[in-house]
Amino acid sequence: MTASRRQFLRIALAAATLPLATRSWADKVRTLAWAELIPEGDTGQLLKQLRGIGVVQHGQLTTGFDQPEAKSVTNAFDGMTVRLPGFVVPLDFGASGVSEFILAPFVGACIHVPPPPANQLVLVTAQTPYDMRDLFDPVEVTGVFHSNATSTGLAEVGYSLQASKVKRYRG
Rank of each mutant, 00 (worst) to 15 (best):
M1L: 06
T2H: 01
T2M: 01
A3H: 04
S4I: 07
S4W: 03
R5E: 13
R5D: 10
R6H: 03
F8T: 09
F8D: 07
L13C: 08
L13K: 05
A15D: 03
A16Y: 05
A16H: 04
L18A: 14
P19D: 05
P19A: 06
P19E: 04
T22L: 10
T22K: 05
S24I: 06
W25K: 09
D27R: 12
V29C: 04
R30L: 14
T31L: 15
T31D: 15
L32R: 04
A33D: 15
E36A: 15
I38K: 09
P39Q: 06
P39M: 07
E40M: 10
E40V: 15
D42T: 11
D42Y: 11
T43N: 13
T43G: 11
Q45M: 14
L46D: 05
L46A: 08
K48E: 14
K48I: 15
Q49K: 15
Q49W: 07
G52N: 12
G52C: 13
I53Y: 05
V55G: 01
V55D: 04
V55Y: 07
V55S: 07
Q57S: 15
G59D: 07
T62C: 09
T63A: 09
G64D: 11
D66N: 11
Q67R: 09
Q67M: 06
P68H: 07
A70W: 00
K71A: 07
S72K: 09
V73C: 11
V73D: 01
T74A: 08
T74W: 09
F77S: 02
G79E: 06
M80A: 14
M80W: 04
T81I: 12
V82C: 08
R83C: 12
L84Y: 07
P85K: 11
P85Y: 08
P85V: 13
F87R: 04
V89Q: 04
P90D: 05
L91A: 02
D92A: 08
G94E: 14
G94K: 06
A95S: 13
A95V: 12
E100C: 06
F101H: 01
F101K: 02
I102W: 00
L103C: 02
L103N: 00
A104Q: 07
A104N: 05
P105S: 13
H112E: 14
H112M: 11
H112Y: 13
V113G: 03
P114K: 03
P116D: 04
P116V: 15
P116W: 01
A118Q: 04
Q120D: 08
L121F: 01
L121I: 04
V122K: 02
L123H: 01
V124Y: 03
A126R: 02
T128D: 11
P129S: 10
Y130K: 02
Y130C: 01
D131V: 06
M132F: 07
R133M: 11
D134R: 14
L135Q: 05
F136V: 15
D137F: 10
V139Q: 03
E140L: 14
E140I: 14
V141N: 02
T142S: 14
G143S: 05
V144G: 01
S147N: 11
S147E: 10
T150K: 15
E156M: 10
G158E: 02
Y159F: 13
Y159N: 02
Q162S: 09
K165F: 10
K167W: 08
K167H: 09
R168C: 10
Y169K: 12
